[in-house]
Design a protein around this nucleic acid. Sequence first.
DNA 1: TTGAAAGCGCTAACAA
DNA 2: TTGTTAGCGCTTTCAA
Lengths: 346, 346
Amino acid sequence: MTRPVQQRRVTIVDVARHAQVSTTAVSKVLRNAYGTSPAMRDKVHQAIADLGYRPSAAARGLRGQTYTLGVMVPDIANPFFPEVLNGVTNRLNDSDYQVLLAPGCAGEKAEAKTIDSMIDRSMDGIILIAPVSPRAHLEHVAGIVPTVIVGRHARSTIFDTVADDDIAGAALVVDHLVSLGHRRIAHIEHLETEPSCIEEMPNMVRAEGYRLAMRRHGLEDQIDIVSTTYTQAGGYTGARELLDRPRRPTAIFAGADIAAMGALEAISQAGLSVPDDISVAGYDNTTFAAFSQVSLTSVDQAGWQIGADAARLLVERIAHRERRSSQIKLSPTLVVRGTTGPPPAR
Amino acid sequence: MTRPVQQRRVTIVDVARHAQVSTTAVSKVLRNAYGTSPAMRDKVHQAIADLGYRPSAAARGLRGQTYTLGVMVPDIANPFFPEVLNGVTNRLNDSDYQVLLAPGCAGEKAEAKTIDSMIDRSMDGIILIAPVSPRAHLEHVAGIVPTVIVGRHARSTIFDTVADDDIAGAALVVDHLVSLGHRRIAHIEHLETEPSCIEEMPNMVRAEGYRLAMRRHGLEDQIDIVSTTYTQAGGYTGARELLDRPRRPTAIFAGADIAAMGALEAISQAGLSVPDDISVAGYDNTTFAAFSQVSLTSVDQAGWQIGADAARLLVERIAHRERRSSQIKLSPTLVVRGTTGPPPAR
DNA sequence: TTGAAAGCGCTAACAA
DNA sequence: TTGTTAGCGCTTTCAA
């Protein structure tokens, strides 16, 4: 029985020797750098293929790039984020970059640890999705490594941002419900416990968009917000609270689909039917919103496009670190399904 | 306006000078290596705190460990995988390891590319979830870097495995349906297009478990399998085909929840009701199976536990590369909900 | 127990 | 256009 020989790693030196050129030449060919003749490129590529050479990211990182981009996701179980991620990876598919995801970073502390670990690993750039860190910290990070922030309604000269227009998204829902005849429209919001950066977070902007739209329709006296979280449990307790009101709302706008699911559960338990007794709308147009049994009216914020734009901005910024920062704001659309209808006749 | 000074990175040399010790000493303290006095440890830790030193993973990787573990996930949008991932990260939470996820590796080619990129980055160990690569390739990889394979029913001397007992899981479903009085029980399977490693894949084992259980109940003449994919569309077309049978089944066992969702859609479109006309069961007990509107009977394979076990085995193997390989097989449980009931009276 | 010094594999400044 | 060479920040023998 042959024992597998633990062979030494093939290095750039082996390639150079095999191709009868210098290591510099190999390095240049690898990086498509200036100053290599076609003949040399061929020789080097041949040697690389012959030897099965693969560059060591660690050694590269010590001097130059690692060809690694990091993406931080707050909650991988929320089906909206995979969609954004697909936009990112798809955009980078035939680039030299490898995307690595740092999972599970709930809260400011875990988030800081995750970002640090990406910096320690000399990543060439990072995309932070809906981070909760204070603005100052994000700017500090962006000063160290090219950074794109997704979801925060912030403006900075050193990082780029991509976000959905949450004001417009909330307005789409309110407009739709008003046009159906609703007046008593309530909102379930996510309230961040950590007080920093409050007004930049998408959840807060959605609540603000709801308020603005209600006022625009002359319904300021109907504004009714319960503060819970964007979770199924949060939606459930929020809806319970709303259903206990002396005059209960005829429609509930939950700031996230998963919260809308909790609300639907509470409504069904209360013996009420949707949309005949009460309408429900969500946000994110996640996979399950389209299930026929669910059929949830929801705001689609084009997660795929958000991811693709973030990836593009990041690559651009890596190439030109001094270029002006961009802020991309994408317009959401409303997907009307079966959970919204006219209010019950009174 | 002060321009942010791009200050030089704090290195081990700075720490050594500040603490008045050698760089060797700092390195030892960092790695909890043998041969450091408490006094020295204190001095070094103090200097690290004073200077805000963080080790460079690239430099470390060039000689020793990178303290990075890679996890490859086939499809991040499938809500079962986040659960496994949470098990992994939770288990490693207070270790020195950082978990990084390589997303989107559909197909053998993309998978190989992803694995290579993890090796290039000198990861200390990798967890491959439901890989489709041929066995020989997995063993080759495991020879280079400590590897744990999740979901494959394989046995190897050089890699560890963690898997759900899919034979038992399929039996749980068939037994449940038979006990309700069903005889015509059909199965929707996922058929891998790439012919390698077929019999090791969880989907194939589930189909085999279905066959075995049917035979055990004396129902071999009722065995009815349609081959599609574990997707919503796959479940939809699979169910359509089954509903068109001259004598249609009274129960459908889909090998994955997401396929069960497609089947439910097809059934509802055909004007049939669940479970009165036909019962449906899934596999994975994903989040949406518990939604009251869905209420899908499903097999729970304890994804969290699978992830935690995989992380434990990987850390053990990194510490003892020569230890005997382990195969962990976890027993699934059945979660009975509203989509299964007695067959219609004939 | 502590430290000096030689690399790890690559990139980039500089020389030819 | 090509090659020589000095590091990048760390780990790891090997001496002291």
